[in-house]
Design a protein around this nucleic acid. Structure first.
Lengths: 130, 130
DNA sequence: GGGCTATATCGATGGTCATCGATTCAGAGT
DNA sequence: ACTCTGAATCGATGACCATCGATATAGCCC
């Protein structure tokens, strides 16, 4: 943490709200930090895991709920969950026999706000200027 | 494949606005598509490139503006720009001697809305439920 | 304790990726 | 046509990563 003097984006783990990267260039350190989080999202299995956890009732899911819907082995699921956890996107806790995972909303919100486009850029899709 | 009866997200390339993955599980095809876009964002250099392009005056930047701020070689920058373009995050056009790149806001908005957390999850940071 | 189930870790393997130097392609100007 | 400059492509290389089977760890129940 710390590194408190720069004006670059996302320098701490708090929510970098209202500072989309469209506004000002990203600092190098911030870019490294954010790239690590995006890399955690760059796998289809992890993306579905995250979505499965987030949309599960109670906001958390047991690993036993997560191994079923995938074609990959249990160690692979465990690996992907570890990646998500180390990226700060999910939290986990063992309760008795089972281990539960939940999404850390602040992390998602940080990335979401970073990608936010300033104006109502939504209507005109894709190749507007192309 | 197919599994067409589900209510899964983002099955087409339109903007998946208002359908954050926190709401309902991501379909497999949608996950593959989205993972490809997030992978393009999973590199610090690409993240800074994107931010540099987006925040440049006029909303677009010449490649000659982009090779300076990095320690990597010109072919590497060119490679990263290609990755961003093929991920549908930026557009490009040659104008005379120079090639210009600009951000495609709809793509960023799509990812941003996907990561949006439903309620005001912003205030309480991280381990809320832990 | 012994066995059973749920997760995590380990080690190996095949594939993908970031990076480079060298080269090629494209346009402009002389 | 020649040359100069900006940018993309090529081929190689070392690093990283997703995946697996085998094994280890953790907690429950009898």
């Amino acid at each position: 943490m710390s590194k408190s003097e720069l004006v670059v984006l996302g320098q701490d783990d708090a929510v970098a709200c209202c500072s989309p990267m469209v506004r000002e260039p990203l600092g190098e350190e911030a870019a490294v930090d954010l790239a690590r989080m995006f890399k955690a999202l760059s796998d289809p299995v992890r993306l579905r895991l995250l979505s499965l956890i987030a949309s599960h009732e109670g906001g958390e899911a047991c690993v036993c709920d997560l191994t079923g819907p995938f074609d990959v082995s249990q160690p692979t699921i465990s690996h992907h969950l570890k990646v998500l956890r180390e990226a700060g996107l999910v939290g986990s806790e063992r309760r008795g026999t089972w281990v539960y995972y939940w999404v850390l909303p602040a992390a998602l919100a940080k990335l979401s706000s970073l990608l936010q486009t300033p104006a109502g850029a939504l209507p005109s899709t894709a190749e507007a200027t192309a």
